[in-house]
Simulated scan of single mutants.
Amino acid sequence: MPNSLIMPRFGCGGCTLRGWAGWAFTDLKIPRLELYVEPWNTSVAAHCRQRRFPSRGLLRSWQELGGERKDMHMLAKLRGAELG
């Protein structure tokens, strides 16, 4: 499925990610949020970086999907970092 069908122009996805992060940091007092994105999914990774979730690195064979181990990029944000 093309990424444009999931998050068209980052509009809806941006609101969702911003709201989710605000709720987690403010109401739940979670100190750190981590997002995991497959390396081929560059548009979602770019969207997360635009929302101030910096890349923390590539995790080799991190998660099993469809019966095989997959690499994942981790993006993370700390509470107190500007919500974007």
Rank of each mutant, 00 (worst) to 15 (best):
D71T: 06
I30W: 07
K70L: 11
R9H: 10
T42A: 07
M1W: 14
I30E: 09
I30F: 06
R69T: 01
F53C: 05
G19R: 01
P39N: 05
L78Q: 02
R32I: 13
M1K: 07
C48A: 10
G22H: 02
R52M: 14
M7I: 06
M7H: 08
A81C: 12
L5M: 15
L33T: 02
Q50K: 11
S61P: 04
G67F: 00
R69C: 05
A46S: 11
G19N: 05
M7C: 05
L35M: 06
G14V: 07
G80S: 09
K70W: 14
W23H: 06
G22I: 02
G11P: 10
L83S: 02
E82Q: 01
G11Q: 09
R69K: 08
D27E: 02
K77I: 12
V44S: 10
W62H: 04
R56C: 02
R56P: 05
S61I: 06
T16P: 04
T16Q: 12
W23G: 02
A45L: 10
F53D: 10
T42Y: 10
D27I: 00
R52L: 12
R9A: 09
E34H: 09
H73K: 00
C48Y: 05
H73F: 04
F25M: 12
L33K: 03
N3K: 05
E82F: 15
H47R: 03
A81G: 09
T26N: 04
M7T: 07
W20T: 08
P54A: 03
L78S: 00
R56L: 04
R49Q: 13
R52Q: 12
G84H: 03
G14P: 09
A45C: 14
S4T: 12
A45K: 15
G66L: 08
L35D: 06
R18F: 04
W20E: 08
L58P: 13
L17S: 09
L59S: 04
G13A: 15
R51H: 08
T42S: 12
S4Q: 14
L33C: 04
R32C: 13
R52A: 13
L28S: 02
T16L: 10
K29T: 06
L83R: 02
S4P: 11
E64H: 08
K70N: 08
H73D: 00
K29P: 10
G66E: 03
I30T: 01
V37S: 05
L75M: 07
N41C: 09
D71I: 01
L65P: 01
R49W: 04
R32M: 09
Q63L: 14
A76V: 01
E38D: 15
P54I: 08
K77T: 15
E68L: 01
F10S: 09
K70V: 06
N3T: 07
T42R: 07
R51P: 03
P2M: 11
Q63P: 09
R51M: 13
W62T: 02
G13R: 15
K70C: 02
L59Y: 02
M7D: 10
A46W: 00
W23L: 03
R60A: 14
K29Y: 14
P8N: 05
A21F: 01
R79I: 03
I6R: 05
T16G: 07
E38C: 11
M1Y: 13
P31E: 10
T16N: 14
